[in-house]
Computed example of a mutant assay.
Amino acid sequence: MTGEPNLLGDHLRARRELLTPQQAGIPAAGLRRVPGLRREEVAMLAGISADYYLRLEQGRDRNPSRQVLESLARVLQLDDDTTAYLIGLAEAGPARRRRRRRRKETVPPSIVKFLAALSLPAFVEGRYLDVLAANPLAAALSPRLVAGANRLRDVFLDPAERALFPDWDRATQGLVAGFRQSVGTETDDPRFIELVGELSLASPRFRALWARHDVANRRGATVRFDHPLVGELVLNREKLVVSEAPGLVLAVYHPDPGTDAADKLALLGSAAATPTRSEQKENHA
């Protein structure tokens, strides 16, 4: 084999090792070195030969049919997002996966104006979860929500950012799953290699989550914050694709009407709009 990464095989192996015999509905007979399914068990349940499945995991066969992939997804109990990702790995085989020069991620001017006009915390993130633009209310929600920051680095490595999320375990799982989906098959990009390498060394939590191969579209969710100024704050988060710039997503936080979260967000907005003492001195200088 060449030095091509074995993305399909790595993904199949990771998901197989997460599924127990009990979950798959088969008896766990005999001594098992790992808690997950054996290769031959996956092959039997999927209706393919054990040798063929072994070739898929080892990367010696990288062109399975869609029918085979859907059967494996059913056996491995993959959700819709992960099934689509699995099929995408096979379709983006080595012959079709060519290294391309990455264009600089640029936020369209219309989106920059839209951010400034929004009276809700909002920011734009790129393919590698870099913050590319943010409005002042986003920075009031978290001082790390500013252009130039990276959501993965901050949530995993910055203690102040971690403290914002009482549900940090759930938040990090969703963050990594969204990151994997966003990157897709473009794992030879130096930016990706550097970021994953840094986080894998610095954060055992990231390393464990990355090894799971979870996949999820970057989508909306309900997020609970423990904010140092206003205390508990529950907000809805929407993630909207920026159609003019592939790979960019606009994230907006908003409260349910009539809740204390709406009042707390208004308080944060007032604090963000009030100039600090140093800013007042600069303005009068």
Rank of each mutant, 00 (worst) to 15 (best):
S182D: 04
V183P: 07
V183Q: 03
G184Y: 10
T185C: 15
E186H: 10
R191P: 09
F192K: 03
I193R: 15
E194L: 13
E194G: 14
L195S: 08
L195Y: 04
L195R: 08
L195Q: 09
V196N: 08
V196Y: 01
G197N: 05
E198K: 11
L199R: 06
L199A: 07
S200R: 11
S200H: 01
L201T: 14
L201W: 10
A202S: 12
P204K: 06
R205S: 11
F206Y: 07
A208Q: 15
A208P: 10
A208V: 13
A208M: 15
L209R: 08
W210E: 07
A211T: 01
A211Q: 09
H213Q: 14
H213Y: 15
V215N: 05
A216D: 01
R218Q: 09
R218P: 04
R219H: 07
G220V: 00
A221G: 08
T222M: 14
V223C: 12
V223S: 10
R224K: 09
R224D: 13
F225P: 02
D226V: 01
H227R: 03
H227N: 01
V230D: 01
V230Y: 02
E232S: 15
N236A: 00
R237D: 01
R237A: 02
E238W: 02
E238I: 00
E238D: 12
K239Q: 13
V241D: 06
V241M: 03
V242L: 02
V242D: 03
V242K: 09
S243R: 09
